[in-house]
Design a protein around this nucleic acid. Sequence first.
DNA 1: ACTAACGCAGACAACGATGTCTGACTTCAG
DNA 2: CTGAAGTCAGACATCGTTGTCTGCGTTAGT
Lengths: 200, 200
Amino acid sequence: MARQTTPREPSAPRRRRADAERSVAAILDAALEALASDSDSSMSEIARRAGVVRATIYVHFPTRESLLDAVMERAVGDVAEATRGAEPERGEPREALERVLRATWRELGRFQNLLAINIARLSAAELHRRHLPVLMQFEPLIERGQKAGVFRSDLPVSWQLAVIRAIVHTASNEIQADRISEADAETAMISTIMAAIGGG
Amino acid sequence: MARQTTPREPSAPRRRRADAERSVAAILDAALEALASDSDSSMSEIARRAGVVRATIYVHFPTRESLLDAVMERAVGDVAEATRGAEPERGEPREALERVLRATWRELGRFQNLLAINIARLSAAELHRRHLPVLMQFEPLIERGQKAGVFRSDLPVSWQLAVIRAIVHTASNEIQADRISEADAETAMISTIMAAIGGG
DNA sequence: ACTAACGCAGACAACGATGTCTGACTTCAG
DNA sequence: CTGAAGTCAGACATCGTTGTCTGCGTTAGT
């Protein structure tokens, strides 16, 4: 989050003006917002929201694809950071999982619809690769819990991670569809994941 | 599956030639196949696969949207039929759920990527509405299990259904991403759903 | 203050997609 | 057999979108 104001690489002749940095940020924010409301917003729409002319986007992002990639990467980065901030390595596994899930979940709320775009845009394998920064945070925690005998060990860790991802997204989805309140969704999500991952 | 050859409604003046029926079937099959390999295949591509000229599609489906709707409806219909065929109302709840899940799962395999298209195309609420024919089959089963005390009752049925849907799709997804074998996926799916829905 | 970086405005070409239409040909149904 | 339904072949207009370019202002760094 702390962007450095002075370039740390004097070898690189590139110097980016504060001006440009602001534009990039505005564009990313606008893209996130626009794509949340319409899965395939045009570059015009994004530019409009960013308060910027369309051509300006192309100065920073050569193609539409590259913009979407950047949006995705920032979103995943933010979530991963939130996850890491909850210290998955600390405390008893079940308690730790719950704590980390809550933190992840809350940050994820900002990026509701983003998933839909990328499901359509990327292959299942590629989508998984992008999610790695988040999932990697959970992996050691799951293994730790398995060794401690509080999480079931009869299923591969990769599967457990997929289940976690699925249920977290389901909670987000059920809220969007207005079938459950935010508070209840969090409870249901935690409780369901615990039942699925923790041996019971 | 058994399409009737003679129209059952003599009041309706519409008479469809066997010819046309074949075309429609070919188009639907082609669309399913095309969309499975590329989430946004064009009408040209679908027509090519169906061995039909593009304009012919528009004879039967006024817009691209309506074609996608028809494809979705047929897919859901087929899955719902498979689910119903497994007789959700018969036998002990846990055993019944497992049986029905396996049947649903197998039919679902035919429509792997179809989900991705509709996630992008439809709202969460609309998507849910389309899935109803399948989910409705599970509802009484879940309730029956809750009353019998073998499924947990501390979470709303709608949530349980969402979880089932999510985990089934996760299994399908993990196979596509080559992180699990088909056989293992089925086992993992059943076992995880049982843990999540059944009190343990 | 000077200069390079940046943004704006607006136009442009190219592309692919959807949806429509016409006329001739083929196939089905009674 | 005959007429109607259906398909084919191909053209057509239209539309929205992406990506590029130019000329002219504006802003930021030193």
